[in-house]
Design a protein around this nucleic acid. Structure first.
Lengths: 217, 217
DNA sequence: CTTGACAAAGAACATGTGTTCGTTTATACT
DNA sequence: AGTATAAACGAACACATGTTCTTTGTCAAG
């Protein structure tokens, strides 16, 4: 069974009403909002919505309905505020071919507000590689990144080495810039890991790491 | 103005009713629940509660009341599930005198469910000291600890070295036990940090570290 | 004991609100 | 076009529910 526009409107209105008053509307209030002149028509549509499982009703009870799946404004705020999109993996080591760019959101990670910056968009990445272990970040860690086009020196940053560089790809490194010269510096005593030196136009900054989450096992 | 038992009962009932039905009760339902035979008495008490600011009413509207500060079951679950008590600081280095024991909860930390164990009580501590940097944990990190009386070998654990040992206090270390011999091993290449060897009865295990949170700056 | 303020009770009332039903209009299918 | 079904309408109805008023009970202060 399909949802008619009028029924859609009814559902929307119930939600708006609940948001505003914390108790459900009467059928007359619904009728007024949905442009329905007769209470019986509202009743009729509410029965349909009940059959579809979108609302539940208690007969003979004033305002005796509930919106299935309704979350209070407070609940929604709580959920959304802390939900950060996870874009994929990020290399801490050899750059990997752009898993950060695609707007495909693989998943969402709940992040406590204490770990989020006061302002700005954030996203999450899963670290793969050992180049930042002296910065206390290793494979499996989730990093929270604040999207920004530039970062300060010696901040940990998610950057892309642009094509056609042979090491093109996204990577996690300490960022250092002197003039137009950019150093992408790992944090690993092993000499196998070493800095990349690039011109600033060969590097695109995605953002800086603001926090880290780690789960053992 | 003081809250009378009957009014207390009314508030409780409204909350229970909201939890169950998602809409507020009528004054008659309240009366029945609170053992009040007359609707006018319910009305009288609701007016008092309104004066006290504990509820809000819409006159002439059926079920036209809201419980100030009410959170839906869903909201409360969302908040409580992820709220972990922060007991204080924990030494990663020289043991410090028991900041873990007191049940005084200094604060609460929101922790996403993904970082919590499937079962068991957890608490949070703020790390102070550098003894675990090779384990990617350093000063300022928040560790989430699952309360348990024993841990497996080479798990990171919060333990107390019992009085009257000279190093008595709580500390964060890798735990290793062979027979009744316990090694508390740091994770720092600096030889200034070294293992403690103790008898198992000199060590009290508080729990194992299950996750880590870090905020930069 | 009396008084006054507060709390409670009960009943009558007014209206808010869901229900029902006969009828009409739209929609879809042969 | 004709017909059946769904959707909408309006009005009357029944009862669910808040309001009001008078009376009674309680309790502390004078």
């Amino acid at each position: 069974m399909k949802l008619r526009p009028r029924q859609q409107r009814i559902l929307e209105f119930i939600q708006e009403y609940l948001d505003e008053y914390d108790y459900p509307p009467t059928i007359r209030e619904i009728g007024k909002a949905a442009g329905i002149s007769s209470t019986s028509v509202v009743n009729y549509n509410l029965e349909k919505l009940t059959e579809m499982g979108l609302i539940q009703r208690n007969r003979e009870v004033s305002r005796g309905l509930r919106l299935v799946g309704y979350l209070s404004k407070h609940s929604r705020k709580l959920q959304d505020e802390s939900k950060v999109p996870l874009y994929g993996k990020i290399a801490a080591g050899e750059p990997i071919p752009m898993p950060v760019n695609p707007k495909e959101v693989l998943d969402h990670v709940m992040v406590p507000p204490e770990l989020l910056p006061k302002s700005g968009e954030v996203f999450a990445l899963c670290v793969e590689g050992h180049s930042m272990i002296d910065a206390l970040v290793d494979t499996g860690d989730i990093i929270i990144v604040r999207s920004q086009p530039t970062v300060n020196n010696s901040e940990m940053a998610v950057v892309e080495i642009m094509e056609p560089h042979e090491k093109a790809g996204a990577t996690l490194k300490y960022f250092q810039q002197e003039g137009s010269q950019v150093e992408l510096r790992p944090a690993n005593p092993d000499p196998a890991y070493h800095s990349f030196w690039l011109r600033s136009d060969q590097v695109k900054v995605y953002g800086k790491v603001v926090s880290v989450l780690r789960r053992y096992q």
